[in-house]
Each structure stands twice: as C-alpha cells, then as structure tokens.
Design a protein around this nucleic acid. Structure first.
Lengths: 103, 103
DNA sequence: CTAAAATATGTAAATAAAACGATGTAACAA
DNA sequence: TTGTTACATCGTTTTATTTACATATTTTAG
C-alpha cells in the first residue's frame, strides 16, 4: 500500500519538533498514560497516585496543554484533564508519513 | 477495529522518551528527511546541501545514531547514512498504542 | 611517507529545560 | 468573612542540550 508522502518545510519542522518535545519526557509520558487510562482525571489524583510533586505535575501538564496534547475542563475546584486524541493521532501520523520507506 | 493496548513500565517510558527526544529537533528532522529522500547519502552531501556546519551535522547524526534511528556504512572515505525504518516504525507504533482511545 | 578529504570527537560557552520551593488565584465550605 | 482545597504560576537553582570551534581519526591520492 502506497502512502502519501508529506514534504515538510521549516515551519512544519519547528512545530512537529515542538510537539515531539512535549511528548519526549518520561514523566509526561507517564502522566499521559495515566490520564489515558482514566479517560478524564483531576490533577490531585494524578500527582497523588503517581507520587509526584504538585507543582512539578502542574508544570508538566502545562507543557502538554500548550502542545495541545491534553485538554481541560473545570468542575468546581477540580480541573479535569483528558487527552486530545485527534492531536495525538495527528502527531503519530505525521512522524509516520514524514519518514516513510514506501515512496 | 480494537487495538491492543500496551501498558508501559518505567523503563519503557525512559527508552521511548529517549527516542522521541532524538527525533524532537528541527535540524535532526530536516536531516532525517533529507536522508530519507535519498535513501542513502554521505555526510558531505547532507551539510553542503542543507547549508549546515560540518561538526554540527556530525553531532546531530551522532545523536540519531545513538538512538538507532539511522545506520551507517563506510565506503572508502565516505560514510553513508540511511534510516533504520523498522526502528522508526516501532517508535510510531509505540506512541500510537501507548495513547489509544479505543480500549 | 606526506598531504588532503571526509568524518568524528573534545570541550567551552550559550541556551533551554527541569526541579524546587514559595506565592497566587479560584472555588467552595464553615 | 475566613479558612481550606485544588490548581497554576513565579523566581531561582540545577541539570541537560545545543552550538561553535579546534583537534583527532581514517582513508585515499600523490
């Protein structure tokens, strides 16, 4: 099956690299997996369960938010995090088609 | 289509993050794309065509080599770089299944 | 053997990211 | 109100990455 090949310009490279950077941290991946596992979950649960510092957790969540990898919704005092699956799928697809043996 | 869900341990997280980090740099992505485009190519062609410094190019290639994203073969004075597609595919698949909506 | 070409590596300086602790803000409960 | 909980952000220190330049290594040509 022949796949479409995406030719990438410098701006795209910058953006793609930024998103990959956001993913490329063990703690962030762990947090993401945790959110994923629960579909939606608040910050307290994340850092208590994973035994992380509150501020560190918030900072990593911020990076994920800025990269648009997660989304939030407030419910009273709580802020629920959930994964932006379309975005993740997009990233995966981008890396996939960016380097593709079958031209 | 239901996909297999990979539960990931700390070591896997570390390894995945390392590979993603190697990918997550605009210049490295540019170099990778260039290698990809040519299937196999030497360092000279890379830095001359992309207008990069020789040592910087070598240093980024080193990072890609250590992450096992590219492979090399020597032919006389020249060292040919080519992409380790199975590895890239593996990374893509890992990210893909790591965060997967369909459980 | 010596010189030059192709590539890699060492290292210092610059820059960026991470961690840490403290403070800020919003929502709610008393 | 005031206090407390949930979360975010700020300022600083620590650590990692990137760049830049010089030097080293390997191979080949002369």
């Amino acid at each position: 099956m022949r796949k479409a090949k995406v030719r990438i310009n410098d701006e795209n490279l910058q953006v793609s690299a930024e998103i990959l950077r956001a993913l490329a941290h063990p703690l962030r991946m762990k947090i993401l997996e945790f959110i994923d596992k629960h579909k939606t979950i608040n910050v307290n649960k994340i850092y208590n369960t994973l035994k992380l510092e509150q501020s560190i957790t918030s900072q990593h969540l911020r990076i994920l938010r800025l990269a648009d990898i997660v989304q939030t919704s407030r419910e009273g005092k709580f802020i629920h995090y959930n994964i932006n699956y379309p975005k993740v799928a997009h990233v995966v697809k981008a890396v996939d088609s960016f380097l593709e043996e079958d031209k």
